[in-house]
Amino acid sequence: MLELRHFQVLRAIAREGSLAGAARVLRYTQPTVTYHLATLESHFGAPLFHRSSRGAALTEVGEALLPHAEAVLERVRLAEQEVRGMVRRGTATLRVGTFPTAGALLLPPAVRSLHRQGVHVTLREGELPTLLAGLRSRELHLALVFSQPGDRLDLEEDFIVHPLLEDPLMLVLPADHPQAHRESVPLTALREDGWIMGTTDWDPCDRLLSWACAQEGFEPVRVMRTDDYGVLQGFVAAGLGVALVPGLGLGSPRDDIVVRPIDGRALARQIGVAVLRTTTVGSAGQLLAELRKEAARIQAEHRGPGLTPPVVAPR
């Protein structure tokens, strides 16, 4: 029968590179480490390490087993942390992830409502890849996520994404830009401009911009990368370039820039909540309900007459 200490020994040998090193960090004797490793290898019927005078290196079977062992140990650590916290506070902790713009506007009212109901919430802010990794490792119960409409997030079927709202993407121009006087600006009028874009090539907003520009027969020229919308606004105001920014990321725009919709096509990113399908934390449902209320309020505030549905780019 497999035991947690077998996995602890496997992980320690892999990290330390030797049985002696594993014995040292685990505070076992070396014969004890050897015994647990032999038990584990007997269970699987294959050697897990190549051993030599230089130490121990994982075999192919060992490399296949190690991530599962680490996942088991991490889940046990999280279970201990959650249950001990529940015993100490009398309530379970809801672990929530968020990306910055949602963390600033969409999430706080919902969390405040849960706090008033006695629910303990911990928050982790990060970019999308960090949040998805936290969900897959079960370090997060749920997370606010975003994607280009029509895209699928890189999450297995264990998760469901509940849509909240479509966040329109708006053009940000210097106040003295030749197109600043327009109520809406066609992308074709910006084909000669430089663009301030996100720091990673997978950014859904940038991919949607590139797709939309391609429909007009040109490719946006990137002149700067940043994920800080305050920095972005400053360099747009300085005339370095123009940008496409989600509505939730605009905050209070500077006086020396203008914000305009794109003429002829409404582009947006989809914001949703990714939740483990089998979660038993009841407060996850409470938070989802509060987020839906806040999303409906934001959507109503930003919905104007004649607003066309957002364009969905092909994947």
Score class of each variant (00 low, 15 high):
Leu48Ser: 04
Phe49Cys: 06
His50Asn: 04
Ser53Glu: 06
Ala56Tyr: 07
Ala57Trp: 14
Ala57Gly: 08
Glu60Gln: 12
Val61Ser: 03
Val61Ala: 13
Val61Leu: 08
Ala64Pro: 04
Ala64Asn: 04
Leu65Cys: 06
Leu65Asp: 06
Leu66Val: 14
Leu66Phe: 14
Pro67Gln: 05
His68Phe: 13
Ala69Val: 10
Val72Thr: 11
Val72Tyr: 01
Leu73Val: 02
Glu74Asn: 05
Glu74Ile: 00
Glu74His: 07
Arg75Ala: 04
Val76Gln: 02
Leu78Met: 06
Ala79Asn: 01
Glu80Trp: 02
Glu80Leu: 03
Glu82Val: 04
Val83Gln: 08
Val83Trp: 09
Arg84Ser: 01
Arg84Met: 00
Gly85Arg: 00
Gly85Phe: 01
Gly85Glu: 00
Gly85Val: 00
Met86Leu: 05
Val87Ala: 01
Arg89Ala: 14
Arg89Glu: 10
Thr91Val: 15
Ala92Gln: 10
Thr93His: 03
Arg95Asp: 04
Gly97Leu: 04
Gly97Ile: 12
Gly97Ala: 01
Gly97Asn: 03
Phe99Val: 14
Pro100His: 14
Pro100Asn: 11
Ala102Tyr: 12
Ala102Pro: 09
Gly103Ile: 15
Gly103Phe: 12
Gly103Cys: 05
Ala104Glu: 12
Ala104Asp: 11
Leu106Phe: 11
Pro109Gln: 02
Ala110Thr: 05
Ser113Pro: 01
Ser113Gly: 00
Leu114Pro: 14
His115Met: 15
Arg116Glu: 15
Arg116Leu: 15
Gly118Asn: 09
Val119Phe: 02
Val119Gln: 05
His120Phe: 15
His120Lys: 11
Thr122Gly: 01
Leu123Arg: 15
Arg124Val: 05
Arg124Trp: 06
Glu125Ala: 11
Glu125Ser: 11
Gly126Glu: 05
Glu127Ala: 08
Glu127Asp: 11
Glu127Arg: 13
Leu128Gly: 07
Pro129Leu: 14
Thr130Ile: 05
Thr130Glu: 15
Leu131Ile: 15
Leu132Ala: 01
Ala133Gly: 01
Ala133Gln: 06
Gly134Val: 03
Leu135Gln: 13
Arg136Met: 03
Ser137Trp: 06
Arg138Glu: 07
Glu139His: 00
Leu140Arg: 06
Leu140Gly: 06
Leu140Thr: 13
Leu140Tyr: 09
Leu142Thr: 07
Leu144Phe: 08
Gln148Val: 00
Pro149Trp: 09
Gly150Gln: 05
Asp154Asn: 05
Asp154Glu: 11
Leu155Gln: 09
Glu157Met: 07
Asp158Ser: 14
Asp158Val: 04
Phe159Gln: 03
Ile160Asp: 04
Ile160Phe: 07
Val161Ala: 03
Val161Lys: 02
His162Cys: 09
Pro163Thr: 07
Leu164Lys: 07
Asp167Pro: 11
Pro168Gln: 12
Leu169Gln: 11
Val172Phe: 02
Leu173Trp: 01
Pro174Lys: 11
Ala175Gln: 08
Asp176Pro: 00
Asp176Ser: 08
Pro178Thr: 05
Gln179Phe: 07
His181Glu: 06
Arg182Pro: 02
Glu183Cys: 12
Glu183Thr: 13
